[in-house]
Design a protein around this nucleic acid. Structure first.
Length: 411
DNA sequence: ACTCTGCCTCAAGACGGA
DNA sequence: GTAATTGAGGCAGAGT
DNA sequence: TCCGTCC
């Protein structure tokens, strides 16, 4: 659910923290994306008609592959370098929220059964969407697809949104793209909404800058986290009677959750028993994420053409012509974007000293040097030229690392 | 009057040819 | 094996 | 821009 009403609250109270951007302006940028969220959307909408979905010969759903394939190509053609981040285990505090969702899905399953019996097509359409869930099979399919496309994936130990934010803090990506405002609460320095909306919708990309948002709200990051908890998050109940407006007023007035709890009228506002706001706060502030360079190394490589044909055409019934054309698109897109990157590469690059220590901890607060990762992007050129070109010494060793590296936690 | 919360529902992709 | 998303808009009603 | 199709 993200944070209730946060979007509107920011629009009203911190307009300078957000600005409209053109889709084109992200050419050459690395962007982190929550994979499970995308997969969920694809399963709901791609090729669905009633309970029918796109499938391969074996009857297995392929909607997620169709969606992931075309969307990723769209991003690559725009010169964007996407990184998909997959969910790990949800934190315990989220269990009850998940239980609610589960029971809602159960209800929908019953409703669907009734609708099927009575043959009500509209209801079948409606309820079947609500029964959708992302399975590990869907996730694995998509990881395989991405690997074949030469697009990096990261396994989050817990929440994908938190991992996306961590990648952005560590300057391994320029921004996090999501429709979920949680990203800001997790502290992603830059956050994009509507990046994937088709241009036909005429919704511009909205870029949030967390430091400007905090400035606009006149809050510290810690206070912002408390604000989000008060507004209502996935980790604990909110206080009845307190919504975004009041929450902002209270945080500004009292400065911290502790102080608010001491000072508010407890007759009027009932605090839930054993309210785990501290734990929720900790999950936002210090989420379980991977910061190790080994595990978050991001590489955009040439597509595995044969692998793609095997997987998509032979195993999943895709049209061979479409796949072939798509592969060509990927190759030219990657060419273009790595060259585009080259031009901009020498200008605005970070000035920080190249600390080469392998820091395994605390990416949370400190922005770390990144020169190294910019260098990596130079390598993403198609296999046509492939093996003849080893433009520089340091790149050679990286080049030989197999792609499967990114999937080392996979089942 | 006005503001706000809370509960409800819905809708959610991408492409290409006409 | 463990049950995996989300916002937005409309409306009612309580509180200020 | 609308609408059928993607598998």
């Amino acid at each position: 659910m993200g944070i209730k009403g946060l979007m509107k609250l920011l629009a009203d109270n911190a307009p300078n923290g957000m600005k409209e951007q053109k889709f084109e302006s992200y050419f050459g940028r690395k962007i982190a994306i929550d994979a499970s969220m995308s997969i969920y959307q694809f399963l709901i909408v791609v090729g669905r008609s009633g309970t029918e979905m796109l499938t391969n010969e074996a009857g297995e759903t392929t909607s997620h592959l169709v969606g992931m394939f075309s969307r990723t190509i769209r991003l690559l053609e725009a010169g964007i370098k996407p990184v998909y981040v997959f969910d790990g285990k949800p934190p315990d505090l989220k269990k009850q929220e998940l239980a609610k969702r589960y029971s809602r899905r159960e209800d929908a399953t019953d409703d669907l059964a009734k609708a099927t019996e009575s043959g009500n097509k509209e209801d079948i359409e409606k309820f079947s969407k609500r029964t959708v869930k992302v399975t590990s099979q869907h996730n694995d399919d998509c990881k395989k697809l991405l690997r074949l496309m030469g697009v990096p994936a990261v396994e989050a130990p817990s929440e994908a949104e938190a991992q996306c934010a961590a990648l952005c803090k560590a300057e391994k990506v320029y921004a996090v793209a999501s429709e979920d405002m949680d990203s800001l609460t997790f502290g992603a320095p830059k956050f994009l909404r509507h990046l994937m909306d088709p241009s036909s919708k005429k919704i511009p990309v909205m870029e949030f800058d967390i430091s400007k948002v905090l400035e606009g709200l006149e809050l510290s990051m810690d206070q912002f986290i408390d604000l989000c908890i008060l507004c209502g998050c996935d980790y604990c109940d909110s206080i009845r009677g307190i919504g975004p407006q009041t929450a902002l007023k209270l945080v500004r007035q009292h400065g911290s959750m502790e102080s608010i709890l001491e000072n508010i009228n407890k007759e009027r506002y009932q605090i839930p028993d054993d309210w785990p706001y501290e734990e929720a706060r900790r999950l936002f502030k210090e989420p379980l994420v991977v910061t190790d360079d080994e595990q978050t190394e991001l590489k955009w490589a040439a597509p595995d053409e044969e692998g793609l044909v095997n997987f998509l055409v032979k195993e999943n019934g895709f049209n061979i012509d479409r796949v072939t054309k798509a592969i060509e698109k990927i190759k030219t897109a990657k060419n273009k974007s790595s060259q585009g990157r080259l031009e901009s590469f020498f200008k605005p690059v970070s000035t920080s000293a190249p600390v080469k220590r392998k820091g395994t901890k605390c990416v949370l607060v400190s922005p770390s040097p990144v020169t190294k990762f910019k260098t990596l992007s130079l390598r993403s050129r198609p296999g046509v030229l492939g093996r003849l070109i080893f433009p520089s010494l340091e790149l050679g060793s990286n080049y030989s690392v197999p792609l499967s590296r990114h999937f080392c936690f996979g089942i």
